[in-house]
Nucleic acid binder design. Structure first.
Lengths: 108, 108
DNA sequence: ACAGAAGTTTGATAACCTTCGACATTCGAC
DNA sequence: GTCGAATGTCGAAGGTTATCAAACTTCTGT
């Protein structure tokens, strides 16, 4: 089966506290920024982040449990997409701010 | 002299990282929400927060150093105002989101 | 000058979070 | 079924932060 589906919170269960806790970490904010700047889903292993794989797993779990990303399996890869609508409803402007900040800190 | 003025960061030195670190704490977010919902400056002692005075001092320092509030003395009281313009420039929608969340969690 | 009000400073403590390496798991291809 | 690639799980180590009580400072009234 290609559908070990990890638990995602409903939109109504996404809290500002959870979102802020998730985004206060630079690594997680970078992940969100990369997703926001991309158009297609990205697998966990294809992000540009400076941490070990086990640490990356932790960060993706935090993002999913906070309601920021949606995850589904494609083979052994775990694909990630942003929950744009849900995030925008909670705090419009957040994704753009993260992306802008990310680009400002990422030398061309 | 009624002007011991604590150091405030310039607008250009306000970072998304610092702002998020400041607002991830529920007590500090509550302070910001109360300021956003008010029209006039509020002294440190007049906020509705569940912590000891020494802890409150710490939280106000964090908020000021992050660039979220401006502080000035009036007698023995330390008055606080929101740096609305600076915050809006960095992350429009943030203050409203904090205030909305605060009101949702504060039973009438 | 004194007393009280409003904050601040100073440790100390406890909780939390990120990070890693090592080992286990799962899926697709062959 | 075996192998390799992509993740997940599991402690342990390290650093950071919130919290408080107690003692100190500063300012306003009287």
């Amino acid at each position: 089966m290609t559908s070990r589906v990890p638990p995602h919170p409903d939109r109504a269960d996404i809290t500002l506290q959870g979102v802020l806790e998730a985004l206060v970490d630079p690594v997680r904010r970078s992940i969100v920024a990369q997703l926001h700047l991309a158009t297609d889903p990205i697998s966990c292993g294809h992000f540009d982040i400076p941490v070990a794989r086990s640490t990356a797993t932790h960060h993706f779990n935090v993002l999913r449990e906070a309601g920021l990303i949606r995850q589904h399996y494609a083979g052994t890869s775990r694909m990630n997409t942003l929950r744009r609508d849900d995030i925008d409803e909670l705090l419009p402007g957040l994704l753009d701010a993260c992306a802008r900040d990310h680009q400002a800190q990422t030398p061309a």
